[in-house]
Write a protein that binds this DNA or RNA. Structure first.
Length: 107
DNA sequence: CGAGTGACCGCAA
DNA sequence: ATTGCGGCCACTC
């Protein structure tokens, strides 16, 4: 695949957009798929600046905590995710180990 | 073009 | 589970 022509934000854009319903990904994971496992912060930055069309609510930090700067706050983030069928603890933590999604490696 | 910013990650106590 | 510290890199102004 010749994705190398895509900018980092473009790759992030592509990955986030392909996260299926009821599934989540971590920032570090998206960053790794975008080509920079250390650019997790960049993913957050991209989320903050633009690409508002992407399902950022499906992107959480590796600890399972919801984004603190999400529009409306963690509460909205929690509501949206719960609407996707993702169970969230009252503290606003999601079971990353259960809902985490990777590209279809399964055959 | 320079500096600051950020929705993070990892480890340690 | 929480808190604190440092590092990392692309994006915006």
């Amino acid at each position: 695949m010749m994705n190398k022509n895509l900018s980092f934000s473009e790759k992030v854009n592509y990955v986030v957009r392909n996260i299926p319903f009821g599934r989540i990904m971590t920032y570090g994971q998206v960053a790794a798929l975008a080509g920079n496992p250390r650019a997790a912060r960049i993913v957050g930055g991209i989320a903050h600046y633009g690409d508002s069309d992407l399902p950022w609510h499906r992107v959480v930090n590796k600890n399972g905590g919801l984004a603190s700067g999400y529009p409306g706050g963690r509460i909205e983030h929690k509501i949206v995710l719960s609407a996707e069928g993702v169970h969230i603890s009252e503290l606003g933590y999601v079971a990353v180990d259960e809902y985490i999604w990777w590209p279809d490696l399964s055959l």
